[in-house]
Design a protein around this nucleic acid. Structure first.
Length: 822
RNA sequence: GCCCGGAUGGCGGAAUGGCAGACGCGGAGGACUCAAAAUCCUUUGCCUGAGAGGGCGUGUGGGUUCGAGUCCCACUCUGGGCACCA
């Protein structure tokens, strides 16, 4: 497609200028109002793909728009540069992950520059920079000191494909690895954890205060999974001095307890198991300990399997509500690490209990009357209590309260809150990550590496494979060290930290990247935090955002970041994904449409405009056979504005006509539309408004009567300013051609609509008869109701249609419409 | 199973309870051209009619209202999140 100007040349000229002149560098003591705009820390996977392009197009629009609004905008960039792909690629190529990563970083950096996205490159941060690692490790040690980092032997999620353990958050619901898709196995290992559960309540409560998409807030709440209930004792039938502690959220259904269940890991299981039942119980425990989380929690399991998954222990406990003995089972549907690892089972009001009771032939006693016609098994809804002694006739809420009080008085009951959220497992048995800065000494135990010896860096000559052992563990030179405490022989920790730790505080370092004596100076960072606008993919709705929120709270509480606001991201925008043939476009899926080719044809501006125009920014984009045409259409729009600004085929007259004024009025109305669109993330309609305006301007200037040139110039100048954040190159170029001595269009203030120009002298009023559109008339926008009705009844079409009939009623909404009811 | 979204022309999508389909893509026709490309102009929801016009129309069925794409109830399909968490 032939363009009226050399796109590549123009774009490169401006990209070089923005970079050379440091146009978007900003200092912490800038006197203007501050604004922190941030796109999510990218993994350097090479040249940018369409998802990146979309992300940085939105981010750059925000940066340029807020700058024109007169703010000092912090726009940093960096790389989440540790991670598995680099390590795997290095193993394959026999090279080093650093070489691989550094090359990919250069590529991505060039890509975003080629897009015309502008950053304060002085503030660049990347995870494998020793200057960043040092503070990442310092933070780990501060967490350790504060008791927020701890080491524990725990059943963990092991991914055979990635040869490392995963956090709960990295395991999909179907039990596969979020990254490789391999089936995750269960292993018992000594691992490092962060105590994110200490913050469960705050993480949950603070969600309310965030200006985030509701969907993301809901996902965060669900993930934390708070539930209120009561913990109490079930006394053993044979010995009432001993008891089994259980947790329930439904104490009101206590009269319906017909058995109890303990988890296979329960510490009292051995004690509860009688000799007659021992072999069956042991078989079940054996099986449960080997089963993966998937098998164990599979809900699609058949009845036969369910039966195998539970066994009678031989013991009985007393139901404290009715003093009846009920059997104790062991079953793997009860989890050892949630609640007390034991439950009271109420088959009538709990589906899982019902299914289990059916198979094991246990009785079902209803304590809530199900609604008329209810045919299912367990009924967990609202209703009136029956068969429940002192709770009979009460609704669920009231019965819960009474039952809880009863348990407090008769069964050591304690009101208790439980969370689904587990502590964050941060150990990774991989090489390309930040080493965990501790040593193990036989005499002193776990000893932190002194902060003045940080960062602990991995040596380069490490053999990486997927044996499952940490590559660093096999490097004797690294592994063997001396204890910082006693000076004796000691061994370094060989695991590295989850890369999600790196992306949990990078935004703080951006705000003060120059400091040397600490991770960042809280006084400097406080000037920018919280992030005013965070932009990224919906795929990070849980993991990254939850971890980053936890990190900031923990950093404040451990004294690393005193005085900072406790939530990092005030406003979040999650962009839609790019789909090709229905699935997400991504490098790992190998279904990329590379952006490079479009730089040659439509330019960065054309591609940016496409991403802004194609649909609501939050929605997914389907890349179809039609997409190329839409991109071309966006470039065509830029060509048209270029030609109009050259006065191509324009006619001019010298007087200022009403027609000229009307064009100028449209420009001012468009200022409002575009501003509103940019504020509300309705970029597609903002672009549409500019397209519409260009049609108006172009039609007027090219008509036979022509336009006053001074008016056209004023219109064009305003147009350029509105388009500047969206298509920064062409607007900068045209502005310079039109104003060679003035400062750049990007340094101009954002235009403000003149209210006297946006007002309309006449508006169209719709005339309806019985709610059906029949005619239209022009009226003053402040026409009175009486005048409006009079005008409507005088309209020729209306007079004819009414044929002398008198209206039963007239609904008047001046100046919008008149509806005549006959 | 539970919790959120969503459903509008051939397509992407617009529409504070008040002109449904802005804007763009695609289609049709025309101008320019020896011709093509590019550009420009006209037209384009469906049905019906020679035309003026008329009828129908925002997933389905009800409801509220002078008036519903928009609000309420029930359902269908679809996308996503969570899913033995007691």
């Amino acid at each position: 497609m032939a363009r009226p100007f050399n796109v590549t040349q123009v774009e490169q000229k401006w990209q070089a200028r923005w970079l050379d002149e440091g146009t978007y560098e900003v200092d912490n003591d800038d006197p203007r109002e501050r604004y922190y705009a941030l796109c999510m820390y990218p993994y350097p996977s090479g040249t940018a793909h369409q998802g990146h392009i979309r992300n940085y197009t939105f981010g750059d629009l925000v940066v340029r728009y807020q700058t024109m609004k007169g703010k000092a905008v912090l726009s940093p960039f960096g790389f989440d540069s540790f991670g598995l792909p680099a390590e795997n690629a290095a193993i394959k190529a026999g090279s080093h992950p650093r070489l691989f990563t550094d090359a990919r970083m250069v590529e991505l950096k060039n890509s975003v520059r080629r897009l015309g996205a502008v950053y304060d490159w002085r503030r660049e941060v990347f995870s494998h920079d020793p200057r960043y690692m040092r503070w990442a490790q310092t933070i780990f040690l501060r967490f350790l000191k504060a008791g927020l980092a701890y080491r524990a032997n725990a059943p963990v999620n092991w991914c055979p494909g990635c040869a490392t353990v995963l956090a709960n958050e990295q395991v999909n619901a179907d039990g596969t690895c979020d990254r490789s898709g391999d089936l995750v196995e269960r292993k018992h290992l000594e691992q490092w954890f962060f105590k994110i559960t200490d913050y469960a309540d705050e993480l949950l409560n603070d969600v309310d205060s965030l200006e985030w998409p509701e969907r993301v807030k809901t996902m965060q709440r669900n993930w934390i999974g708070r539930s209120e209930g009561v913990e109490f004792d079930l006394a053993l039938a044979v010995d009432s001095s001993k008891s089994l502690r259980v947790f329930t959220t439904r104490p009101d259904t206590g009269f319906g307890v017909t058995y109890a269940v303990v988890a296979p890991e329960h510490p009292l299981l051995d004690f509860l198991t009688t000799d007659d039942e021992r072999s069956r119980v042991q078989a079940l425990v054996e099986r449960a300990s080997q089963a993966s989380e998937l098998e164990r929690t599979s809900s699609s399991d058949s009845g036969a399997n369910l039966e195998k998954r539970g066994a009678f222990t031989g013991s009985f406990v007393i139901n404290p509500f009715n003093q009846q003995p009920v059997p104790v089972y062991v079953a793997d549907y009860v989890l050892g690490n949630y609640g007390t690892g034991a439950i009271m089972a109420v088959p009538a009001e709990d589906e899982r209990d019902f299914a289990f009771a059916e198979i094991h032939g246990l009785p079902v006693v209803r304590t809530i009357a199900p609604p008329e016609g209810f045919t299912g098994g367990a009924y967990s809804g609202e209703g009136v209590h029956i068969n429940s002694g002192f709770l009979d006739g009460l609704d669920v809420a009231e019965a819960k309260e009474r039952a809880t009080t009863y348990l407090e008085e008769h069964a050591q009951g304690l009101r208790k809150v439980n969370y689904r959220l587990r502590d964050w497992l941060v150990s990774r048995q991989r090489f390309w990550g930040c080493p965990i800065p501790v040593v193990y000494c036989d005499a002193c135990g776990i000893v932190p590496v002194p902060e003045d010896q940080l960062p602990v860096l991995a040596p380069d000559d490490v053999v990486m494979d997927k044996s499952g052992q940490s590559p660093l563990a096999t490097h004797e030179g690294f592994r063997n060290t001396t204890c910082p405490h006693c000076g004796g022989a000691a061994r370094r920790e060989a695991d590295t930290m989850d890369t999600f730790t790196d992306s949990s505080w990078y935004f703080l370092r951006y705000a003060d990247p120059f400091t040397e004596g600490q991770a960042f100076d809280p006084v400097e960072v406080e000037k920018w935090m919280p992030v005013d606008q965070y932009i990224g993919g919906i795929e990070h709705a849980i993991l990254h955002l939850l971890y980053a929120r936890f990190y900031l709270k923990a950093l404040i509480d451990t004294g690393v970041a005193p005085g900072l606001p406790r939530e990092p991201f005030k406003r979040l925008f999650t962009q839609g994904m790019i789909r090709l043939d229905g699935s997400k476009m991504s490098k790992s899926k190998g279904n990329l449409i590379a952006p490079e080719k479009y730089y040659e044809t439509v330019g960065a501006d054309g591609l940016r405009l496409f991403h802004l125009f194609v649909g609501p920014p939050a929605d997914d984009v389907d890349w179809t056979s039609q997409t190329e045409d839409v991109i071309e259409g966006c470039a065509r729009f830029l060509d048209r504005i270029y030609r109009l600004s050259q006065y191509d085929e324009c006619h001019f007259h010298t007087e200022r006509t009403e027609g000229d004024l009307e064009v100028l009025r449209e420009v001012h109305r468009t200022i409002d539309k575009v501003t509103d669109g940019l504020e509300k993330w309705s970029y597609n309609t903002a672009v549409a408004a500019l397209m519409e305006l260009l049609n108006t301007m172009s039609k007027a200037a090219r008509s036979k009567e022509g336009i006053n040139q001074v008016v056209l110039d004023e219109c064009l100048d305003l147009f350029m300013r509105l388009l500047a954040p969206m298509a920064p190159h062409i607007t900068a170029e045209l502005w310079e051609m039109r104003h060679p001595d003035a400062s750049s269009v990007h340094a101009q203030p954002w235009p403000l609509a003149d209210a006297t120009l946006t007002a309309r002298a006449l508006v169209t009023m719709v005339l309806q008869i019985n709610g059906k559109l029949k005619s239209r008339i022009e009226v003053s926008p402040d026409v009175s109701e009486v005048d409006a009705i009079a005008a409507a009844l005088a309209d020729a079409t209306i007079v004819e249609l009414m044929a002398g009939a008198s209206p039963q009623r007239v609904v008047a909404v001046p100046p919008r419409l008149i509806n005549i009811i006959l």
